[in-house]
Simulated scan of single mutants.
Amino acid sequence: MRGVADSLMMHSWLVLGLVAAVAGYDYTTVPGLNHDTWWGPEGKEEDTSIRPFQIKWEKAMIDDLVYRLENRRKFVPSMDDTAYHYGVNTHTIGYWLDYWARDYNFTAREAYVNKHPQFITNMQGLDVHFVRIVPEVPEGKRKIPLLLLHGFPGSFLEFHEAIDHLIAGVADKDFVFEIVAPSLIGFGYSDYTNKQGLGGAEMAVIFKKLMNRLGHDKFFVQGGDWGAHIADIMVVFFQEEIIGMHTNLGMALTDKAFSMITMGSLYPAALMPNDLTGRLYPLKDTLQWLMREFGYFHFQATKPDTIGICVTDTPSGMFAWFAQLISMASRRANYDDPRGGLDLYTPSS
């Protein structure tokens, strides 16, 4: 049966690939885009002021969270000897939930998330939260603005430890970075919209305008995951403003790229160095992994309201949803790890 399932997954990917190839998508023309779409409540005006902001966790919120964690319903036991093949193993989740409820230092964590200066400003009707650090520039050095865009499941905290190094500069370089790290729209402390149509392209416009509002006509951008998607769009849309981009999710989704990847399966070394071919080939393994692990992406893209109810109403459900994504995105070997590779992380991390 497993061989049949593998065959079906391969055929599904082949069909999807053929459909994409014959569709003739235009990857080169920049689409028309309204740069002034109002995404906020009607009747509200855009407040262009930049307001200081601090994260505050009220005692009532913490008490409610702890109550929900400690009074969670008993989980249905996962099947024997399945480790993390079917997602988070329910035999392992109790440790983390108990730690969260009983030992998590909310006071220390609140201080940590407020480590860097934060602000709020309104962009096209939505309050956008961001970290901004303007370093003192030593003599002989210049200041370069850098926009940092996080991904999912993540937040601006992805950059907390790196920021100190970025603003410190390097002795043999003539520049230091000014940091702007926003919460993506609908993430963390940035507003969400109730209007349809706000995707990566629309966020690219908002964050370009945010940098302009902060006084930057030209800047660098770095993105990971969803942030990488937005950064890719910014580079195409705003070629005069973006000095350069760094990404930790480099992807090419064009017909040419798909064709090269497919032909490369015949002789991988012709496409990439020998020591890297194992990251993509055998192509069958890569496609099976994508088919197996990207169900969450399809679900969130097509039924966000449903999963939103699940992860918002129960902290146990939210933890499980995020933990399985962290597990599968770290190492494929985590399937066979009884604890899903999560022991790599200490509770304080």
Results as ranks from 00 to 15, higher is better:
I242W: 02
F322A: 10
L198C: 05
D217A: 08
D63S: 12
N71C: 06
L146W: 00
V76N: 12
R132L: 12
F258G: 11
Q124R: 11
S330N: 11
S330E: 05
T82Y: 15
T254C: 08
K256N: 09
M10T: 10
K303V: 10
I120Q: 13
L271R: 09
L249D: 06
I261Q: 09
F207T: 00
L69D: 13
F152E: 05
M203H: 04
I167D: 03
Y345M: 14
Y84R: 02
K141M: 07
T254R: 08
V180C: 04
I144P: 00
L126P: 05
H35L: 06
M291Q: 13
P268N: 11
M234N: 00
Q54M: 04
S349V: 15
K173C: 06
G24M: 03
L280A: 13
L344S: 10
D103L: 13
Q222K: 02
F237S: 03
D313R: 01
K209S: 03
I261G: 04
M251Y: 13
A231Q: 01
G340Y: 01
Q222V: 04
R292F: 14
H298V: 08
Q118G: 04
H165Y: 10
A270H: 05
V176E: 01
P315V: 12
L283C: 11
A171V: 11
T92R: 08
S7H: 12
R279I: 07
F220N: 03
A323W: 05
D98W: 11
V134Q: 04
L198M: 03
D64V: 03
E139R: 13
A21W: 14
F156D: 01
I144L: 14
G317K: 01
M251C: 10
V88M: 12
M1H: 06
P52N: 03
A21H: 15
G3V: 10
G188K: 00
T277G: 07
D63E: 12
R292P: 04
I307K: 06
Q124N: 12
K141F: 06
Y25A: 12
T121A: 00
T314R: 02
M291K: 09
I261D: 05
S183Q: 02
Q54E: 15
N212H: 04
A329L: 13
R109G: 09
D6G: 14
I50G: 00
G227K: 04
K173N: 05
H165T: 09
A201S: 12
Y189P: 00
L69H: 15
M263T: 08
Q324F: 02
L8C: 04
R142L: 06
P153F: 01
D305A: 15
F177P: 04
I55D: 03
T247F: 01
L65K: 10
K173W: 00
D80L: 15
N114G: 05
L16S: 12
Q54S: 13
K141P: 06
R279S: 11
N274W: 09
Y112H: 13
P273A: 11
Y281T: 07
A20R: 14
T254Y: 07
I233V: 02
I167K: 00
V134G: 01
G151H: 07
E178I: 01
Y95A: 12
K303D: 12
H129R: 05
M211N: 07
D172Q: 10
P182C: 02
Q222M: 07
T28Y: 02
I133V: 15
F187S: 00
W100I: 15
V19F: 11
